[in-house]
Simulated assay, not measured.
Amino acid sequence: ISLILITVALFFGFECRLTLVTHLPFGFFIPIVCGLLFLFNMGCLLRTAWSDPGIIPRASPEENAYLERCLQDENTHEYRPPPRTLDITINGAPIKLKYCFTCKIFRPPRASHCSMCDNCVGESSSILRLNHTNRCPGHVLYILICFFSIWSVVGLSGFHSYLVGRSLTTNEDIKGTWSKKRNRDNQNPFDQGGLW
C-alpha cells in the first residue's frame, strides 16, 4: 500500500498536473483515468487482503470420533489410521481426495493445507512522454519502482491469465495434476471449455 500511495502521490504531484497546463489534446482525461485506476487497484488490493481465503472447518470431535469408529478393524477392534485418499467422481472424471491428518477431514477438490494459517483452504502501465525539459525529483524513483515492479506484475498477470484460461489452480499447475504428459486420458473436470 505504501509503494502504491507514494508512487501515485508523486505522479499526481509532479507529472499529472503538467498535463493540465500543457497543450496536450484531452490532457484533462489523464488525471481522471489515473484516479479511477488508482481507486480500482486499491479496491482490488483491499478486497483481496480482507476477504476470507476459504478456510475449511476442521472436523468436530463428534465427526472425528465417528470416523475413528468407522476405521476400527472389525476383527480386533483396534484403531487403524485413515486411508490417505478417497476416490470420488466429478463430471465423469475420477478425483482423489486427500486426508488431512491435522484437520481430520478429507480435503475437497482443489483444496490444500496452508502451513501459514495451519488450516485447509479452498480454491483459492502506460507511459506518457511529455515534451518538456523540466526534470522532477520523482523521475528517478518512478523509473526504479516501475522497472522492478513491472516485470513481476506482468509475469504474475500473464501466469494467472494462463491459469484462468486453462481452469487450473496454481497448485494443480505446479503438480501437473491434469497434464496430458502424465496421462493422455487426463481431463480437467473443472474446465469450462475456454477462456470466455
Rank of each mutant, 00 (worst) to 15 (best):
S2W: 08
L5M: 14
L5N: 15
T7A: 11
T7Q: 10
V8I: 12
A9S: 13
A9Q: 08
A9W: 08
F12R: 03
C16Y: 01
T19D: 03
L20Y: 06
L20S: 05
H23C: 15
H23G: 15
L24C: 10
P25R: 15
P25M: 10
F26C: 06
F28E: 04
F29M: 13
P31G: 12
P31D: 14
C34N: 15
G35C: 10
L37Y: 08
L37W: 06
F38I: 15
M42S: 07
W50V: 00
P53Q: 02
G54I: 10
I56R: 00
A59C: 08
E62M: 05
N64Q: 13
N64V: 07
A65C: 06
Y66V: 11
Y66P: 00
L67Y: 11
C70D: 03
L71N: 14
L71T: 03
Q72A: 13
D73E: 09
E74H: 12
T76Q: 05
E78K: 15
R80W: 01
P82M: 02
L86R: 14
T89W: 14
T89R: 14
I90N: 01
I90S: 02
N91I: 05
A93F: 11
I95Y: 13
T102R: 10
I105P: 00
I105C: 02
F106D: 00
R107W: 07
P108C: 02
A111G: 03
H113Y: 05
H113V: 01
C117W: 04
C117V: 08
C120K: 01
S125A: 11
L130I: 15
N131Q: 12
N131P: 10
H132A: 02
N134D: 05
N134C: 04
C136P: 01
L141H: 01
Y142Q: 07
L144G: 06
I150Q: 07
W151R: 01
V153Y: 06
G155M: 02
F159Y: 15
Y162N: 13
G165A: 11
T169Y: 08
T170H: 12
D173S: 06
D173T: 02
T177A: 09
T177N: 09
T177H: 04
K180P: 01
N183I: 06
R184C: 06
N186V: 13
F190M: 10
D191H: 14
G193S: 10
W196K: 04
W196Y: 09
